[in-house]
Design a protein around this nucleic acid. Structure first.
Lengths: 176, 176
DNA sequence: ATAGGATTGTTCGAATTCGAACCAGCCGCG
DNA sequence: CGCGGCTGGTTCGAATTCGAACAATCCTAT
């Protein structure tokens, strides 16, 4: 926490510390947004995310599974949330002819309206907390990093069993 | 998703898209690590985090409240987890003389051992997914960004009611 | 056609999280 | 002293999440 400490970290930050801070900041960000969203608009961050994803999609609709993938939760959780949103009238289930088991979740007009009411508020929050701190170069750099991480995860998911070409245990067992 | 699309995003990424990707990657990372941790070591990511924080602290001990702050969850959730870890014998509650209501959570020897068993595995995972993709400059840059975001959150928490000097609604109401 | 295998969504019970209410023990001020 | 206000932890009930099991449907290859 001393100035010297900070200075040295700035120049060559401990990579493990970066991961720790990443987790911490990430959680704080989400927690903050979630709370704000519930207090001022009566919806969860998950629900908000679902509605945003729907609004962004062609025909304001998505399949359940695709939603689960985007939001990164269990399918059952999506079912649960869609039930809730459906009861609130913000969302609607419709069968789509092609695939008789598939279901399309549609954002209703009410849902779109509700979203348009909430979005500016939380977008400005995101900007203030997150985006405004990025200059153009940093945004590009971060975007690139996100892409790399995403690719790493993709590869992992494609080949779930531990990489045979990577024995990961020869490196530091320290706990920081 | 086309090559041109990617190219242009690389050069001048849409800031809103950066936030979206950030959320997505963040969730995937945590999900992945959580699953691995449970499958191979029988503990939750939260539990792991708690134990790491304890191991990193002086005397391998922390106060409940401080833990709640670090992990960023409700105090009740910490109580719950500490009960669990305590039943598993990985952690121990002790009163500290000074403040009769305060409680110090200690990492037991068993806990330390368990942690030392799990840590290399998940550290190598974190490296592979996250850290190895950072060169030195990027790590420094990211660290700096994390600091900024953290400061933003600090200021927010210090002054919870919407900043009077910031009217956030004049900007784009688009939902992407 | 048709059996086997994958995919889609739901249901169910268990685990976890949250917030609000609550009980102490600390502190400052009369 | 002794009365309010704070802080640290717990308890409780409600909300949410997860994974596994299930049912229905599609797909592919014989």
């Amino acid at each position: 926490m001393s100035a010297g400490d900070f200075e040295s970290r700035w120049l060559a930050p401990d990579v493990n510390a970066v991961w720790t801070r990443f987790l911490h900041v990430t959680h704080r960000l989400e927690h903050h947004i979630d709370r704000r969203l519930q207090e001022q608009h009566g919806i969860t961050h998950t629900q908000y995310e679902i509605m945003v994803r729907l609004a962004d999609s062609d025909g304001r609709a998505m399949r359940m599974s695709d939603l689960a993938d985007r939001i990164v939760t269990a399918k059952s959780a999506v079912t649960y949330q869609i039930n809730k949103l459906s009861e609130m009238g913000l969302v609607e289930r419709r069968k789509c002819g092609r695939d008789n088991r598939g279901i399309w979740v549609h954002l209703t007009d009410g849902g779109a309206e509700r979203l348009e009411h909430a979005a500016p508020c939380i977008l400005s929050l995101v900007r203030e907390l997150f985006l405004d701190s990025l200059n153009c170069d940093q945004a590009a750099e971060l975007d690139k990093l996100l892409g790399t991480w995403s690719d790493n995860l993709d590869e992992r998911d494609r080949n779930p069993i531990g990489h045979p070409d990577h024995r990961g245990l020869e490196s530091a067992p320290e706990l920081s």
